[in-house]
Structures are given as C-alpha cells and as structure tokens.
Design a protein around this nucleic acid. Structure first.
Length: 260
DNA sequence: AATAACCTCAACCGCCTCGGG
DNA sequence: CCCCGAGGCGGTTGAGGTTAT
C-alpha cells in the first residue's frame, strides 16, 4: 500500500521498509539508542536517510506503539481534543499513550472527520427544526447524504432527473389526505401544514426537493423521506440514491410541521 | 468477470522551531 | 544578532486493497 522501494539519485533508499531493514534499525536502536538520527543509518548499515529512520522508529517500530483498534474512549478524546486545539496532532498524540501523531492524523482523516461532520449535521438539523415554523427543513445535498444510514426496504420506482416544473407538478398531485397519522398528530390535516418543496441547485444543475418526513405506508418503517407517485414510492431526490433514512428523526418528528 | 471509483495508510516533502557556534 | 544543522510537525502523495457498477 506504499511506494515500492527505490533509490534516489543520491543512492538513498526510499519507499516501503523491508523486514530486514526493520530488523536492522530495531536491533541498532535497542542496543545503542538513537543518539543522532542523521548518523544513525550509517552505523546501523542502512541506506536510508535519518528522517526516514526516525519516522519508521517513532511510528511503527517502537515497542510501545499500538496499531489500529481504536476504542470509543480514544475516538471521543481525539474528537474532543481536535475541537479544542485543531490539527495539533503531536499534542493530541501526547494525550493518547501508544498512539502516534501520524496514525492519529490518518485516523482522523479517514474515520473521525466524517463522524464529526455527521454529528454537526444532526445538531444543525435539530437546531433548524426547532426554529422552523411550517416551511419544512432546508438541507444541502451534502448534508443529507452525510446522514444517510441505510437503503429502503420497499420498492422504489426508478427515476431519471426531472425539471423543477415537472417535479412541482408531481408534488401537486400527492394525496396528503391518505397519509398515516401518528398518535401525536391525530388532528393533523394536509391543509394545515403543506410540505415545502422546490429547491434548485444552480451549481450542480440538479433539481431536488427539500426533504419531508413520511411514514412508510407500505411497511410502516418510520422516519423515511419519500413521496408517493403513480402508486409507488419515489425518493424526493432524483440523483443517484433512492430514499433516505435518518437517525435522530425523532426530534424532527416532534418539531417539524411538514410530516405526512 | 472486468473495470472504475473510492478508501486506507505508510511514507515523503517542505516548512518551522530550537539550540549551538 | 546571524547562520546552520537536527529534530519535529502537518500536509500531501500514491500504491494496494476494497467496494460498486
């Protein structure tokens, strides 16, 4: 997964470390320590530069280095520290015994960054839904995709991109009066709170609607974003995914007036 | 089954800081 | 002060693995 080993123009070996090189470096440092990184490779019989040796030792060969298997406490601590001090990976690593700055940095970029983004989206949704007064929920496509957690279990009609006009026409034909009501919405009528729709993303050219929450009429899975069309269900999004589930929709159900 | 697209992470690069002369 | 070298740091790269089409 790393660059194949090669020699640069100065005869310095670069790229992935071999088992033999690891053994040489480890054996040398365990015997003599790392008194001078620049000189060390010569004495250890390695064709590497000092920086490369230092990095290899610090990040992978040190006996106290842990690899992978981050637990929830470590995840939480990294996210908390990153929120407080930003990309100060060495400072963050100092708080996590056995973890290196390089590994934490990679772990952040590949796992935690997405999670933080999701958490922020959810809190924004909650904030927005609590401030909304009948016009629905406004989210970017990116935000919506970031909180997608599953795919629909019922049949979704295949759809191709539609014009804003076509979309609005379809929505106007929805039968809101047949939508199921939850216990807390027994007095709800379509006229009271019509959903808010059209949003046109000029930058991408995609037409999409503002999402609205609907109980799944077919199999009663709750918290699904969809609408009825031609006797089936379609996602309100006409791009490359069909229907959306949301975690944390309970709050929106309680606060948003645009439920079907 | 083949190919493309995306993900992962070890390693490199370039810049910064610090200490010694 | 200034210069230089070593260590340290954060951003980026890119090959291999995995998943989607």
């Amino acid at each position: 997964m790393v660059r194949a080993p090669f020699f640069d123009k100065n005869g310095v070996r670069k790229g992935a470390w071999s088992k033999e090189e690891d053994d040489k470096l480890k054996a040398y440092i365990e015997k003599y320590g790392h008194w001078n990184w620049r000189e060390l490779p010569k004495f250890a019989g390695l064709s590497r530069c000092g920086k490369s040796c230092r990095l290899r030792w610090m990040n992978y060969l040190r006996p106290d280095v842990k690899h992978g298997n981050y637990n929830k406490e470590e995840d939480d601590l990294i996210m908390q520290l990153h929120e407080q001090i930003g990309n100060k990976w060495s400072a963050i690593a100092a708080k996590l015994p056995g973890r290196t700055d390089n590994e934490i940095k990679n772990y952040w970029h590949t796992h935690l960054k997405k999670r933080v983004k999701q958490n922020k989206s959810k809190s924004n949704m909650r904030e927005q839904s609590s401030q909304t007064s009948g016009t629905g929920i406004s989210m970017s496509i990116e935000e919506v995709e970031s909180v997608r957690v599953d795919t629909p279990s019922h049949t979704i009609l295949e759809s191709s991109p539609l014009s804003p006009e076509a979309y609005c026409t379809m929505f106007s034909q929805l039968r809101f009066d047949s939508a199921p009501k939850t216990a807390s919405e027994t007095n709800w009528t379509a006229e009271d709170n019509p959903p808010s729709f059209e949003t046109y993303d000029d930058s991408s050219g995609d037409f999409w609607t503002e999402p609205f929450v609907a109980d799944n009429i077919v199999n009663h899975d709750p918290y699904k974003f969809c609408f009825e069309h031609d006797g089936g269900f379609m996602s309100p999004y006409v791009s490359d995914f069909d229907c959306l589930f949301y975690e944390g929709m309970q709050e929106l159900r309680m606060n948003s007036p645009v439920m079907l």
